[in-house]
Simulated assay, not measured.
Amino acid sequence: MKRVLLFLATNLAIIIVASITLSILGVGSYLNEAGTGLDLQALLIFCFVFGMAGSFISLLLSKKIAKWSMKVKLIDKPQNSREEWLVRTIEKQAKDAGIGMPEVGIFEAQQANAFATGANRNKALVAVSSGMMQRFDQAEIEAVLGHEVGHVANGDMITLALIQGVVNTFVMFLARVIGFAVDRVILKNENGLGIGYFVTTIAAEIVLAILASTIVFWFSRRREFRADEAGARFGSRQGMIGALQRLKAESQVPNQLPESMQAFGITGGKKKGFKALFMTHPPLEDRIAALQNMTD
């Protein structure tokens, strides 16, 4: 129920923000004055506003979504030595990384995982699964926490939102150009925007969004190598390698992070062939090899 309400609220917020912004910019219809062609400048502004709005509203809500969907227990006051160590470790790493102290939490999941999220690098959230806390040793957990702090310090969440916003913009823009061309050239409609435009636009958006998402996933994979380096720096290289090796040994355990959160976890599973283009994380073998070849 919470997810449905959040989905509706997000879409309503996008409509409100986009409508206000478009009114301020004076953008109404993206048909030209004669109604015979597209006003490409107006269309690009329209798509940019809606594309960026959706991406950044999702980013602004990312911490709330993570807390709700993963039932994260925030550690405001450590209840035991393990929690106290967790908070102190992240506090030290955040200071070394030059960012504000993130919120710290634990979520119930047997799978070993961790994630970081948040729109502000000085007000982020770092959470680790109960399974990882139970089975990994301190050096491995410290490296994983450094990996997540590295994501925050590198501004990965914001950069990912920017890339997603740009991708959204061009997907919407090209889909509408294709829809207009089909409506006018193939279906010979000359009165406004016909049903062919809307059907073609929706179909084109789906196809283009799938193809364009490979760009987002490519960036997501590249940033994991930098975050691994941060894990080695804020923890230890051997600890980071050990954590990845343990994750590889446990790779048969299903990923318990929701689809929307998997890009921010420590591992995103393994896919082969064409599906590998849609992986949020590189293969663990490649990440281990990169750390082993890393120069001090």
Results as ranks from 00 to 15, higher is better:
115 F>Q: 04
13 A>H: 04
262 Q>I: 13
23 S>Q: 14
121 R>V: 06
153 A>L: 06
214 T>F: 00
222 R>G: 01
173 F>Q: 12
248 K>N: 08
79 Q>S: 14
236 S>L: 04
189 N>E: 08
220 S>N: 12
42 A>F: 13
113 N>H: 14
115 F>H: 00
237 R>Q: 14
196 G>S: 02
206 I>C: 05
151 H>N: 10
173 F>L: 08
293 N>V: 01
75 I>W: 04
244 L>C: 07
47 C>E: 06
98 G>E: 08
167 V>G: 03
215 I>V: 04
281 H>G: 09
116 A>C: 13
242 G>I: 08
123 K>R: 15
138 Q>L: 09
100 G>N: 00
174 L>S: 10
102 P>D: 08
2 K>Y: 07
52 M>R: 05
222 R>P: 05
249 A>Y: 09
218 W>Y: 11
36 T>E: 15
132 M>P: 05
122 N>E: 02
134 Q>I: 11
259 E>H: 05
69 S>I: 10
137 D>H: 12
77 K>Y: 09
129 S>N: 06
135 R>C: 04
262 Q>D: 06
147 H>M: 13
198 F>A: 15
110 Q>P: 00
18 A>L: 01
166 V>I: 15
95 K>L: 14
216 V>L: 07
250 E>A: 10
216 V>R: 02
105 G>W: 10
7 F>E: 10
80 N>V: 04
29 S>V: 09
